[in-house]
């Protein structure tokens, strides 16, 4: 019990500042604006979130606070991909009326997760930060990450643009950013010292994923036109 309370007590910067809390709200707003711009979606009117929105957002905020991102202090309670998707997607699954729509939206995500789990031998989020030793494992990890981002392009089109939607988009994007972060850390291990890498690489990985996702959305919009 003391361990649990101690861990939660020490997790307050994660809950309030980074990667949850203030950082999450600002980054989600910026990401939402960027993705809407790329997809050509209308800008939603500013409104204070209601209780229902916040109820949906609590799970997303908890996931964001527990993401294994440096330089935040590590927490002993890691999540896995199944739990992460559950926390992010449960309010949205109910909106898809038919099984065909559910499978069209989530099957690519499940295939991507299968590739990631095969590459790392685990569905834990922290395992995504480890680059497998074998080339096949690396290829699977890269393929799984690319497929995850591709799946997000379709998945995020149902968002209406509120705070909860933006936080969900950030959560899904940050899951994809974990393997990118692991790959960057592995590539730049000799050049960047540990503490500096902890500060520079997570934003770089997020930026790469956000640009890639935005690019895909822009390309899809171009094809549609």
């Amino acid at each position: 019990m003391g361990e649990l309370l101690g861990a939660i007590g020490l997790a307050w910067p994660r809950l309030l500042l980074y990667p949850g809390g203030l950082f999450a709200v600002v980054a989600a707003h910026l990401l939402g604006a960027w993705l809407r711009r790329c997809a050509g979606s209308p800008v939603p009117a500013m409104a204070l979130p209601g209780p229902a929105t916040l109820c949906h957002a609590v799970g997303t905020l908890a996931l964001l606070a527990l993401l294994p991102l440096a330089p935040a202090r590590s927490v002993p309670f890691g999540l896995d991909l199944f739990m992460a998707l559950g926390l992010l997607e449960w309010p949205y699954l109910a909106r898809r009326a038919s099984r065909e729509r559910v499978l069209r939206a989530y099957l690519p995500l499940i295939v991507a997760t299968t590739a990631l789990a095969t590459a790392t031998g685990s569905v834990e989020l922290t395992a995504l930060l480890r680059v497998p030793a074998s080339p096949q494992g690396q290829a699977l990890l890269a393929g799984g990450t690319a497929l995850w981002l591709l799946a997000l392009r379709r998945l995020l089109t149902d968002a209406s643009g509120g705070v909860a939607d933006d936080l969900r988009a950030l959560g899904l994007l940050l899951v994809a950013a974990l393997p990118v972060l692991g790959a960057l850390a592995s590539l730049l291990e000799a050049i960047l010292p540990g503490p500096l890498a902890g500060w520079l690489l997570p934003p770089a990985a997020m930026l790469i994923c956000a640009l890639a996702l935005g690019g895909m959305m822009r390309a899809a919009r171009g094809r549609a036109c």
Binding site: A7, A11, L15, F77, F82, M83
Partner: peptide, 17 residues
């Protein structure tokens, strides 16, 4: 290979709520 920190998550979600 997989983790379900249900108790910790409930506590965190209570704080966030």
């Amino acid at each position: 290979v997989a983790t379900l920190p249900s108790i910790a998550l409930l506590a965190l979600m209570a704080v966030l709520a």
